[in-house]
Computed example of a mutant assay.
Amino acid sequence: MSTGAVITAAGMVTALGDTAASTTAAVRARLTRFREWPSYPCLPADPPRPEEPFSVVAAYTDLPRALDLPVRLLALALQDLATSADLARADLEDASFFLARPSPGPSAHHHELRDAFRERVADAAGVDAVTRGLLAPDGHAAMLLGLAHAARAVEADPGTPWIVAGADALVDVGLLEALDHARRLKSRRNLDGFIPGEAAAALLVEHRRRAEARGAPILAEIEGSGVGQEPQTVESGDPPSGAALAAALAAACAAGGPPAWVLCDLNGESYRAKEWGLARVRAPALLGGVRALWHPADGYGDVGAATGGCLAAACVRSFERGASPAGRAALFAGSGDGTRAAVCLVSAAAKRA
């Protein structure tokens, strides 16, 4: 059944573009922006080889200010959201916020940033309502969980819109060192890894009746959502089962049936690819007909807590432009703690058909 929740605006900043529109166009064109970053040399291969520059996707990185990136990026994403939807500052203040913070890191500065993230974003964006926002769990699934929460919230209270927002920048040297030692970073030493990136996204979720009353364009309807818990996490060393991901996608797509288009957080790690393959084996009737599989981390890198929001922004902007492979899309992402989240979005055109 329809939740009545719709997405009416999206903002996004990545290495591929400083707006949701430009990033999505780059994703559709399969552009990339990888470059070597000599500020952090990865651990040497075995047998040792000369140190290699580290590959990173970066548009705004300035090493002395790298830990402040998520705040600056999210302020830009909120500005894109407001500009694209012609929203005033008062409109943002009237909304409730669901906020995904940057990934945890080992440094004291990183912990300080996470602890004060709401206040710092509020100062940078000039929106006090951010300080009253709910904080999401960590990881890739955070913003998809936020969309599911916002959909339930606007159905219960149609008069209050929600802004689901998040940012991350996986370029903190301490975090890079931890990921490198865990063999998670892609390098000459470790081909089974990911290239880190930086991004922020923000989505406006409101009830269809409220959107129609104010004449807002409806970019997508949140048709359904699902959550699962994978027991064999990426850091466990054991292969995933795929059961939790299959269950989350089944719940998200229960109302509309099998999706033809899937957007996901595959990032180059074989663990995630295996999990997707196993989920398809477990649910062939649901996932066997997928014709288009988008994994934008190929272009802008792994963007941590911003992942789910960037997937959703790319989806709804493609709907808006009439450039989507299908009128319905399933989105999924998995966090390091085993949380698997999925959301099904339907375009306004497909809803009318």
Rank of each mutant, 00 (worst) to 15 (best):
L249H: 06
G226P: 06
G322D: 07
V290Q: 04
A148T: 05
A153W: 05
G11F: 00
D172E: 13
E36Q: 12
A211N: 09
R89A: 15
A342M: 04
S39P: 00
A148Q: 08
L170S: 01
A9V: 08
D180C: 06
V171I: 10
D238Q: 09
G215E: 04
L31A: 15
H207D: 09
L16I: 10
E51L: 14
L99K: 00
D91P: 02
G299D: 03
G288D: 01
S22E: 15
A342V: 01
A252M: 05
I7Q: 12
G327K: 02
L135E: 04
K351H: 14
P161S: 03
S22L: 04
A243Q: 13
R30Q: 14
I218F: 10
L191N: 02
W294M: 02
H111G: 13
Y60A: 14
G224H: 05
W162E: 01
A21R: 15
G126H: 14
A108C: 05
P240V: 12
A75W: 03
L245W: 14
L249R: 06
R152Y: 08
E235G: 02
A248H: 09
D265K: 06
A178E: 09
R132I: 00
D302I: 02
A136Q: 02
N190A: 08
L134I: 01
A75R: 09
S236M: 00
L87K: 01
A77K: 01
V171T: 14
H207A: 11
R35F: 13
F319S: 08
L266R: 15
C42Q: 08
A88I: 04
S55C: 10
R35P: 04
V205P: 07
T160A: 12
D302Y: 07
E51K: 06
P158T: 13
P240G: 12
A20T: 00
G308L: 02
R30S: 11
L278Y: 07
D157A: 15
F319T: 11
G289A: 11
H295C: 10
A243S: 10
G288V: 11
C42A: 13
V171S: 09
Q232N: 13
P102Y: 09
A297R: 07
D172C: 07
A15I: 09
A199D: 03
